[in-house]
């Protein structure tokens, strides 16, 4: 049962992927659309991470762009500093095609490194600051994000104010599959006992503690995982966008991610995916009217919040109607992945 489900899932994801490849091959998807799609994947990964921290665990964090920049600079630095040498050595050792294949693994390794470094910073920030509550935590995380930005602006080895040029070596394929992987990861985490523990902290921290849940441990865990995902997204961003600049990761970027998560629905995986897609598409769709773009977005945001204060999805997940009928909640809990 479990495996058939996986297979169906995988087949559908693969089918969509094949569809995009076919469409872009036939010229129906322009480069700009493809880049937009990659950006959507990046933002979905970011939003998933923040949703785990803010939506599921209930810790308000507005420093997510800081983690993203850490991941972006870690991956970008590795790729730009060692990429050329690794690529040359590999081509020599394995020939063109084999070398390129192994080089791709190197790039994936830089992404993993970016995610890992960001996660480490997540723990580092998480441990001391998680005793802060609500808005105090929010401002501390904003502060963290800004400190990261200022450090990067002052670090000559990372390009400082000129930015760090990184070759474009990651495209739609990588972004898409890593995004799916992140969805699966977060889905499984949230539906595991760890995830339940996180949700219990959101619902009532004191009650959770009374029930014997080590709240600090789970908060740090959520922070590490969320930061790691932000780092992964940053790595993809760095390897896709040709250049990374510290000011691309200022606190307005953190706001943007938070808006996606809240707009979609805190504590809903499908919701934050929806939020990321809606915001990115809206941003690009309005790019022909630059002076009106932000006005329209801000008005929509305010109106949205007034009429749907819990976001598009609330805490519920989007399901297929016929599936909902067939599925018992009990099965969901016991057999959930």
């Amino acid at each position: 049962m479990r495996w058939t489900k996986y297979l169906i899932w995988l087949a559908a994801a693969g089918a969509f992927y094949a569809l995009t490849l076919a469409l872009s091959g036939a010229g129906f998807i322009s480069r700009f659309m493809l880049m937009t799609m990659v950006q959507i994947c990046i933002y979905i990964i970011m939003a998933l991470g923040l949703n785990l921290i803010t939506g599921f665990t209930g810790q308000l964090s507005i420093g997510h762009a800081g983690f993203m920049s850490i991941g972006a600079y870690a991956a970008g630095f590795l790729a730009s500093t060692y990429g050329g040498r690794v690529s040359a050595a590999l081509t020599e050792a394995l020939g063109g095609a084999g070398g390129a294949a192994v080089y791709y693994i190197f790039i994936l390794a830089t992404l993993a490194a970016g995610a890992f470094v960001a996660a480490a910073f997540g723990v580092l920030l998480g441990l001391p600051t998680l005793r802060l509550r609500g808005d105090y935590l929010a401002i501390a995380t904003i502060g963290f994000g800004e400190i990261v930005r200022i450090v990067l602006l002052n670090t000559k080895a990372l390009g400082a104010s000129s930015g760090l040029p990184v070759k474009n070596s990651v495209g739609w394929t990588t972004a898409y599959w890593l995004m799916l992987l992140s969805v699966v990861l977060i889905y499984n985490f949230v539906n595991s006992s760890h995830g339940r523990a996180c949700i219990s902290i959101r619902e009532n921290e004191i009650a959770a503690e009374t029930m014997g849940i080590n709240t600090t441990k789970y908060k740090v865990m959520a922070f590490a995982l969320g930061a790691g995902l932000a780092g992964l997204a940053g790595g993809i961003y760095a390897n896709h966008m040709y250049l990374i600049h510290p000011n691309s990761f200022n606190f307005l970027k953190s706001f943007e991610i938070l808006v996606m998560v809240v707009l979609g629905g805190l504590g809903s995986i499908t919701g934050c995916i929806l939020g990321a897609v809606v915001m990115t598409v809206m941003n690009n769709a309005l790019s022909a009217f630059p002076e009106m773009r932000m006005i329209v977005i801000s008005v929509l945001l305010v109106v949205m919040m007034i009429f749907r204060p819990n976001g598009l999805m609330g805490t519920t997940e989007l399901r297929l109607p016929f599936r909902r009928k067939a599925a018992g909640g009990k099965e969901d809990v016991t057999h959930g992945l």
Binding site: K5, W9, A12, I269, I273, L274, L318, R319, L320, R324
Partner: peptide, 14 residues
């Protein structure tokens, strides 16, 4: 079967 996952997938596709 897990309905949620299919839902997510479906949503993604749409």
């Amino acid at each position: 079967m897990n309905p949620r996952k299919n839902g997510i997938l479906c949503l993604l596709l749409v």
